[in-house]
Computed example of a mutant assay.
Amino acid sequence: MSSAFSLSDDPRAVAVPAGPDDAGQRLDRFLAARLPEFSRARLQALMREGAVSADGRTLVDPSARVNAGETYVVAAPPPAPAEPVGQDIPLAVVFEDAHLIVIDKPAGLVVHPAAGHADGTLVNALINHCGASLSGVGGVARPGIVHRLDKDTSGLLVVAKHDAAHRGLSAQFADHGRTGPLVRSYRALVWGLLSRPRGTVDAPLGRSERNREKIAVRADGREAITHWEALERFEAAGASLVECRLETGRTHQIRVHMATLGHPLLGDMVYGASHRTKAARLSEEGREALTALGRQALHAAELGFAHPVTGEELHFESPLPDDLARMISALETQ
């Protein structure tokens, strides 16, 4: 049962009571965990705007600590016009209805505008494609990004068109498929021959203290679990094709977890730079395919979830894109 409920005197307001186990948490993290329809960044912005309170006190510090027994109220304003502009960017639409859209994202396409990528993103493309069917998510009339793929990761991604769909999908992703039909499966090419046919990496992840742009295994990190299975071994090339199923969905999770096993992804210059010399073992065709790949060899091949409005179980598969298929062909003929 949800601990959040709408206040009768303000239909925009949502109240979240804090229990004994919540005491001491950062307020923004606490609210983000309880209100999956709001991103942590959105909650921080609402706090700065004076839209978060507790017992009549306006709370503007996202790092404030939660007190047990207090009720925190979030009053979000109505959706504002989308800040990103719509752009006519081709989309590979796998499924679409009035509530959501499933995209097969190409490598190289950034999902959301950010520093260095103000436009030309999937969000810009969706605003143009979906138009008036976007009724506002997280305070802005824009598509609801429930999960993300790295810029250079290809494959399936689902996006909500309105708040109700966003909340329903967010709840499934927050539950990690433990009590529902959510499935996220990836194909990855990794260096080395795995010693076992399958296994699980259960290692918490957080920002690296040495390099804040990287993710690292940390004892104080967020829970992260990846189940992997070796699908094919390329003995001569010293590489493997692996299926990775996510039980959680942290930033760079597969890339870091496979590197932790000593099997970083081909083409991953962030977490696999120490293995770049392995490319010398490849045939000329393999080296050319790896150069042409120019990215981490990772593809979101399978996505399944319950439709957030109808409850129908949906399941989608995406074939390997040409660059990965060429890489596999080169490894097979090594």
Rank of each mutant, 00 (worst) to 15 (best):
S2K: 09
S6I: 15
S6D: 15
L7N: 10
L7W: 05
R12E: 12
A15T: 15
A18N: 07
Q25D: 14
F30V: 01
R34A: 15
L35R: 02
F38L: 12
F38V: 13
R42C: 07
R42T: 14
L46R: 08
A51L: 11
L59V: 10
V60L: 13
V60Y: 01
D61W: 03
Y72R: 07
A76K: 04
P77C: 13
A82F: 03
V85P: 04
V85M: 11
G86D: 02
Q87Y: 10
Q87C: 10
L91A: 07
D104F: 01
V110R: 00
H112D: 09
P113L: 13
G116P: 02
A118R: 15
D119Y: 02
G120A: 11
V123R: 02
N128K: 04
G131K: 09
L134E: 01
S135M: 07
A141H: 13
R142Y: 11
R142A: 15
H147R: 11
R148Y: 13
R148L: 06
S154K: 11
L157P: 00
L157C: 06
V158D: 08
H162V: 11
D163E: 15
A165S: 14
A165N: 02
R167N: 12
G168P: 03
S170E: 01
S170P: 02
G180T: 01
R184W: 00
W191H: 15
G192A: 03
T200P: 03
P204L: 11
P204N: 09
R207N: 05
R207G: 01
E209P: 03
R212I: 15
W228M: 08
W228R: 00
W228G: 00
E229A: 14
F234D: 07
F234Q: 00
F234E: 00
E235L: 11
E235N: 03
L246Q: 06
I254N: 01
R255K: 05
V256G: 00
V256H: 03
H257G: 05
A259I: 04
L261Q: 06
G262W: 02
H263R: 02
M269H: 08
M269I: 10
V270P: 01
G272L: 09
R276N: 12
L282F: 14
A289N: 03
G294L: 04
R295T: 12
A297M: 11
H299A: 07
A300Q: 08
F305C: 08
H307W: 02
P308F: 00
E312G: 03
E313L: 14
P321S: 04
I328F: 02
I328P: 00
A330M: 08
